[in-house]
Design a protein around this nucleic acid. Sequence first.
DNA 1: CGCAAATTTGAACGTAGTCAACAAGTGTGG
DNA 2: CCACACTTGTTGACTACGTTCAAATTTGCG
Lengths: 244, 244
Amino acid sequence: MVGSSFAEMLNGWIELTPGERTALDRLEERVRNVRRGAVLQRENEPGDELFVLRKGMMMTYVLLDDGSRQILRFLFPGDLIGVPNMIYRDAPETLCALTDCMVSPFERGALTELFTQHPRLAALVLVHSQIERVALTDRLALLGRTSAKARIAALLIELRNRYRATDRNIANAFPLGLTQEEIGDATGLTAVHVNRMLRQLEDEGLIARVSGMVTLLDERGLMRAANYVDRYRGIDLAWLPKAR
Amino acid sequence: MVGSSFAEMLNGWIELTPGERTALDRLEERVRNVRRGAVLQRENEPGDELFVLRKGMMMTYVLLDDGSRQILRFLFPGDLIGVPNMIYRDAPETLCALTDCMVSPFERGALTELFTQHPRLAALVLVHSQIERVALTDRLALLGRTSAKARIAALLIELRNRYRATDRNIANAFPLGLTQEEIGDATGLTAVHVNRMLRQLEDEGLIARVSGMVTLLDERGLMRAANYVDRYRGIDLAWLPKAR
DNA sequence: CGCAAATTTGAACGTAGTCAACAAGTGTGG
DNA sequence: CCACACTTGTTGACTACGTTCAAATTTGCG
């Protein structure tokens, strides 16, 4: 086992002290494998663990009582998942693996320890949660105020960027790893319409699709279609408390 | 000036120590008044302050480049606002007062101090951010997967609940305080359609409207129409670190 | 190879958007 | 205190984007 995935994600933003590194390693000392399609946590069931996603891709979603589903977010290695379990007895959302995954579960108590022993790491948990917050508000604007085509384009760009964050080599081609129904549930569309929009993006030469791989051919054009905002520019962590 | 608004909001969840109380009071020692309609912070402009909302009602929104607006959230006394400024040099969203408001601005550094001096308060900041996260994901599901009528019904219930959280006396009637265009920008609809949906809710006897006041006549019916989930049930803060 | 899941396409439909006109409020200055 | 301007609310007619339903085709897995 290599070091903490959460730590790795922070790589580039911040230099960890040996003490911090140890604390994060401890958070991820246990490991659990989750098969593709398996549910790690079900909405409304008691959830007393949090997790770090180590490997693979997951998603969170909620079900509405007419049976429809809203996918809230796609999750990648280094992500802290199930954080709302910290405060809600019952999980507010389902966690489901999109590929075979590896996660590191830890108790709420481990977080408590982080807050008392490692204030800077605690602050980084808040940082992570704020980055996620902004991602969610971007998606909110996407669902509330943009066309079907823009939503699909934005989703493709977001997925490519997140893949790239875990693997620097990925340029413009990546495995989609989602059914069109899942894309629909993420973007508030039907699978049928997702299909039409993908075809349209393809016909316009913005993307190419070959056996599950998507290639972004005209990134500029996609970004224009998608109303894209780059949120990773301009992050500033100078305010963080001193490391302990 | 009475005590901290953030502390007041925590009232009922948790018993603060004198030291914690002092720390929160210090966070809110300064005060700034904001006129109705005034912008406290503009999207993409440098934002180096955070705020506690003390009095009044505000909203956050983003503008898309076709000029349309998505309102992300309505803000009430006790809310921590502008928290993303902690990490983003430029503000990701606009903060705007819906009524005459009072806010307490504080520096990022004040938060740093909280993390090192008062781990339990730091944890509460994370708690607040997670409650907001869940509220945002509920709204995401609302925009992605429900009808216009459900969105309006859900908004009315949410507003009533948040009013009630600051004023226990409010039962079923409250001042709407929003134009139909604002309701539309919050729910991803046009002002015209908002009007039709309000009328429909009124015709069906679910609500009444008199000169800016809204009364929820049939709460059950509204909740059914809105797919409502009560998130305030089942909050559990037993895991919090010990107070210092 | 065979079956189930996922994709693709067409046609008809419906929810919400657009455009336009008018009414009702709201606030301001004369 | 009223007149005027401007914002907000209301309603109707028409349009369009995305949904629904259905069926054919492809893909991928056991």
